[in-house]
Lab assay of single mutants.
Amino acid sequence: ALNRGDKVRIKRTESYWYGDVGTVASVEKSGILYPVIVRFDRVNYNGFSGSASGVNTNNFAENELELVQAAA
């Protein structure tokens, strides 16, 4: 299972961040479909780089994520 702070690569092909590595911000335990919230260094097309207006978190299912580096 994934944990907060883990570095993960995104495998959801239609995602803006496909192939990117993000950090797990939190994992919901309530049984929702996309329980893993991942935070990225770059914002998506809703904002400009360096601006706070873009979105830099997204929810994924565990099977859409590949663990790159476990949290220390």
Score class of each variant (00 low, 15 high):
Ala1Gln: 14
Ala1Val: 13
Ala1Arg: 15
Ala1Gly: 13
Leu2Asp: 01
Asn3Met: 12
Asp6Ala: 03
Val8Thr: 00
Val8Cys: 05
Arg9Phe: 05
Arg9Ala: 04
Ile10Asp: 04
Ile10His: 02
Lys11Val: 06
Arg12Tyr: 04
Glu14Thr: 13
Ser15Gln: 00
Ser15Ala: 01
Ser15Val: 02
Ser15Pro: 00
Trp17Thr: 00
Tyr18Asp: 02
Tyr18Val: 03
Gly19Asp: 10
Gly19Glu: 06
Asp20His: 07
Asp20Phe: 07
Asp20Asn: 06
Val21Ala: 01
Gly22Cys: 04
Gly22Lys: 00
Gly22Gln: 02
Thr23Asp: 03
Thr23Gln: 05
Thr23Pro: 00
Ala25Arg: 09
Ala25Asp: 14
Ala25Phe: 11
Val27Asn: 03
Val27Phe: 14
Val27Cys: 03
Glu28Arg: 07
Glu28Ile: 11
Ser30Leu: 07
Ile32Cys: 14
Leu33His: 09
Leu33Lys: 10
Leu33Thr: 10
Tyr34Glu: 05
Pro35Trp: 12
Pro35Lys: 10
Val36Gly: 01
Val36Thr: 00
Ile37Lys: 12
Ile37Tyr: 07
Val38Asp: 00
Val38Arg: 00
Arg39Leu: 15
Phe40Ser: 00
Phe40Ala: 00
Phe40Arg: 00
Asp41Lys: 06
Val43Asn: 06
Asn44Ser: 06
Asn44Asp: 15
Tyr45Pro: 15
Tyr45Ile: 15
Asn46Lys: 05
Asn46Ser: 10
Gly47Leu: 05
Gly47His: 10
Phe48Pro: 15
Phe48Leu: 13
Ser49Lys: 05
Ser51Trp: 06
Ala52Pro: 11
Ser53Phe: 10
Gly54Ala: 09
Gly54Gln: 04
Thr57Met: 11
Asn58Val: 10
Asn58Ser: 15
Asn59Pro: 07
Ala61Ile: 04
Ala61Cys: 06
Ala61Leu: 04
Ala61Met: 10
Glu62Ser: 07
Glu62Pro: 10
Glu62Thr: 10
Glu62Asp: 07
Asn63Ser: 14
Asn63Glu: 12
Glu64Met: 01
Glu64Gln: 02
Glu64Ser: 00
Glu66Arg: 02
Glu66Trp: 02
Leu67Trp: 04
Leu67Cys: 04
Ala70Val: 12
Ala70Trp: 07
Ala70Met: 09
Ala70Pro: 11
Ala71Phe: 11
Ala72Pro: 14
